[in-house]
Amino acid sequence: MVNSAIQKNENTTCTPVKTEQSVTWRPPVDVIETKDEVLLIADLPGATAESLDIQIENGLLTIEARVEPRRENAPAYLLREHGATKFARSFNLGDGVNTNAISAEIRDGKLTLHLPKAEAAKPRRIDVKSA
């Protein structure tokens, strides 16, 4: 059920949501799991460490970034394919993530979130003793 709901949303045609002053975009992300952590990489062009707001509350991870307009007056565009004033996306984290040890860095408009796995979620090697 959850998967089909997500798929339905993922395939929606991309159009910016226009409110009075802001355009909010849902940034593309990669979610990659390694042995010890889950990496979330998000494209947030124009965002800086100061403009980012990352919160975790009751297992809900919310990433928000405000992007300051780079011009006071909107020019007459010959081509317009971007123009977000805000990026926002949320994820539910399961018990497998140690939410106390999450760290984040942003560089060149690319956010990397490190979500360490809880001890219980790490792969464990079972030693087999010979009898």
């Binding site: 949303n9 991309c14 849902r26 889950v38 994820f91 984290l93 993530v97 979620a121």
Partner: peptide, 14 residues
């Protein structure tokens, strides 16, 4: 472990 949340105010994919 990791599941996306879509609230009422979800925004379109960009």
């Amino acid at each position: 472990l990791f599941e996306e949340v879509f609230g009422a105010s979800r925004t379109p994919y960009s």
